[in-house]
Design a protein around this nucleic acid. Structure first.
Lengths: 110, 110
DNA sequence: TATATTAATCGTAATATTGCAATGAATTAA
DNA sequence: TTAATTCATTGCAATATTACGATTAATATA
């Protein structure tokens, strides 16, 4: 089917999977790392930095923007992207709660 | 193409995206949460707990196992799964490094 | 041995994702 | 106004993912 049955899972599980999914491609990981590193915002330098065609980068940026993890500002003919720090922090809280589940109760298997 | 150009990204970026990808489906999130909660290991209870068919759950378990995040032990006719605590911790380190990048340097966009 | 139970695997249909060439829209520069 | 620049969008081909019925393999029980 290629279609997840999201209706049988709770909001938290669906939200975690949506954030994780957007990190599930190395190009988007690389884009985010570069935005963090460059601090001030970058634009289509990303196309040069990462070795993918412009429409491909544009598509990945769109997905990151759609989840609110980055913002884009038009500056003349170019568009400047950067991390949305507030939303990034909120995402981190959700992901950390999932990743940092209590392991001390979990013994070796059976 | 449906195929990520992993060769143009570094190992860290590819590894992060592989872990994230496996969390990118709510069923796998739910499976992991249940394994954490049940502490002692569970088997095909997962099929009942989560509302998906047995082959589907089995497939998701296979992916989690392939990444080393869970272990499976055969017990008679049933198979008992649990979190691989060591690998989970290692994964957490990698994901935290990515999620906890320094935000203090990132100002509002442009 | 025959049957039941459990879970993995196979095969397949439906849908999603990735990547890019071609094109379009918006702005700037000449 | 015309041309150049930058980026988004469209359309499409190749591949991946999700889900499940049917089957198989392995073990347990009668």
């Amino acid at each position: 089917m290629g279609l997840a049955k999201t209706e049988i899972f709770n909001d938290q599980q669906n939200e975690i999977s949506l954030f994780a999914k957007v990190f599930g491609h190395p190009a988007r990981v690389a884009i985010l790392q570069h935005l963090f590193k460059i601090n001030s915002c970058v634009c289509g330098d990303l196309v040069n930095e990462i070795g993918l065609a412009q429409p491909t980068i544009s598509q990945h940026l769109k997905e990151l923007k759609h989840l609110g993890l980055i913002k884009g500002n038009v500056e003349g003919t170019s568009v400047c992207y950067c991390i949305d720090t507030e939303n990034w922090t909120a995402m981190k809280t959700i992901m950390n709660e999932f990743l940092n589940q209590d392991l001390t109760k979990n013994e070796d298997c059976c």
